[in-house]
Design a binder for these strands. Structure first.
Lengths: 338, 338
DNA sequence: CTGAAAGCGCTTACAG
DNA sequence: CTGAAAGCGCTTACAG
């Protein structure tokens, strides 16, 4: 690589000190009362030399890198990559760059990323916490690292967080099916202790109870590393061929919803005749279905914007702990298009 | 944030100089012939103080940040987010962190990202170049910045690149339809001067000519910012109701393929009865279709791995320009599942 | 065997 | 109005 031009080069070229150049280029010429003539000379030199500041040097000196770290479960997953895109834009609007990392829902991978990001002196972290990552989160809180948890949080740890009202999400979804005379409703979830999953399951259970269907409660918790489609096919095959109507299925995540669609297709069940389907998050697969499928919509834009917004406040020094819970929207569809 | 422990703290605690601590912690204790006893003392202190190196300071001194910048069109697009994930993993395996940015296929946004990343002293760049970004790429080459272009490249600019054999991809796809007695084949592409698009279109054209179907050549180039689905619906509605068989459609990108599926559904055309469909890249939407849809498969893993691999070589100082062209795979499916 | 010292490229409190 | 100087936390050529 070529040698880069530094403040020193500009200083030499314009016959002033490095300090003066720094003041001018950082817009402190007024408070430092630099002569207009000098200001112009410096600006011109910087322009001519095509000066670009070395952010690393600046970061070291300012003890702030204008970088934030974001840890998601898997950046290849559309739910997270869409969120990442919004975070990227919001951060850029605030003059920040984002480093991303994928934890694969694994606490030790997550910890390695946290350490790597902190060593790179990120100014703050946005984390989709993995199961079992309580210790590392507590550690961050203790060290007063600006931190926002998103999608999930730990009820016992006092941190900023942006999450969905997960209880309401599945509660509403369940009620919707009940109102449509679907009494046999199964919830498909991950076997995961994290709050977002527990709340989604609880929402379903409470709605069933409230509808007098406590006896029909049926929750399947699938392991993260299981063969989802295969597990779901097993469940679907157990449905008696002649029932009293469609059987309801509510899926607790987008990945499970899509696996559900595969299992339904593979077992030749039909939506809506055999199955009343409610997925989680949107996606082309839901929209392309005819009739388009119903789902719980998550406010992705809100997740991204709020988390950056809160993090910026924390970085600027407000010690305020903000916990935001966004409302889900139940998108109901059913009209056949063709 | 708490004050971090530095080499100085360890030096004081173990009663040696900062230099010695640095040597020990960087594994130079043998070549510097540090006494075993001192080595142990330093290691123990570092451990006890829970020392974490400040990468920013190290980067400034070493003039290398162990960070690479990757610019894609849109990280929210699964094609790019999947590639990003592989790049993340490969880079991590080499001790590198990745900063991502989305250009939205806009040369000026891309340039802003390039500048921002260089100011952050990235050691190299992996770029999915936007249309019209030749100048900035030439600039990078001139400055000898380690650089790998991926997905597309500029034939007139001598850079490392990893791309698909795009000509072969659509050539094969077209021949496949011809062999299946589908003579009326339309190519749906972006109106874009970039090589990957031109080659995909050329592959189709040449295959048509080679099959004696030059008279049937039909290419639709859709603007990036147009309403794709709407444009495609217009095209589909022009197909005469009673034809001599299905009409072939080959889509030049994944986004276009998915828009195509929406347009087909919206106009109530049926695959495979009315339309022989060949998409680009995989995806749940293709797999969920019954029968599953055929498509040109891109070696995403290869894109990610090769680009990081080549970039690492460049960073290590090999001046070798490597241009890799990966082979597409035509995935043909058609058996109805239900 | 070990350390003093220079220096990476900045910013900023302080002096004049 | 402007600059000398210290210092952010490291690495490394050099001296002894």
């Amino acid at each position: 690589m070529e040698k880069r031009v530094s403040l020193k080069d500009i200083a030499r070229k314009s016959g002033v000190s490095i300090a003066t150049v720094s003041y001018v280029l950082n817009g402190h010429e007024d408070e430092k009362r630099i002569r207009k003539e000098v200001v112009d000379r410096v600006r011109k030199s910087a322009e001519e030399l095509n000066y670009q500041p070395n952010q690393i040097a600046r970061s070291l000196r300012k003890r702030s890198s204008s970088t934030i770290g974001m840890i998601v479960a898997d950046i290849a997953n559309p739910f997270f990559s869409q969120m990442a895109r919004i975070v990227e834009n919001e951060a850029a609007a605030n003059g920040y760059t984002v480093i991303f990392g994928s934890s694969d829902e694994d606490a030790s991978k997550s910890e390695a990323l946290v350490i790597s990001f902190l060593n790179r002196q990120v100014d703050g972290l946005i984390i989709v916490p993995a199961e079992g990552s309580e210790t590392q989160i507590i550690n961050l809180v203790r060290r007063r690292i600006p931190l926002v948890l998103v999608d999930r949080y730990f009820p016992d740890i006092n941190t900023c967080s942006v999450s969905l009202d997960n209880f309401q999400a599945t509660y509403n979804a369940t009620l919707h099916l009940v109102e449509n005379k679907v009494p046999d409703i199964t919830m498909i979830a991950y076997s995961n202790r994290l709050i977002h999953m527990r709340e989604r399951i609880r929402g379903y259970r409470e709605a069933m109870k409230a509808s007098g269907l406590a006896g029909n409660i049926s929750v399947h918790e699938i392991g993260y590393s299981d063969d989802h489609v295969n597990e779901l096919e097993k469940i679907l095959r157990k449905i008696p061929a002649e029932g009293t109507g469609p059987r309801g299925f509510i899926f607790a995540t987008n990945a499970l919803s899509v696996s559900g669609l595969f299992a339904i297709r593979n077992t030749c069940k039909k939506i809506p005749k055999d199955i009343s389907f409610i997925g989680f998050d949107g996606g082309d697969s839901f929209d392309l279905f005819d009739p388009p499928l119903s789902f719980v919509e998550q406010p992705l834009g809100g997740f991204g914007k709020e988390s950056v917004h809160i993090l910026m406040e924390l970085i600027r020094g407000s010690g305020k702990i903000t916990k935001i819970q966004l409302s889900p929207k139940l998108i109901i569809r059913g009209e056949k298009i063709c």
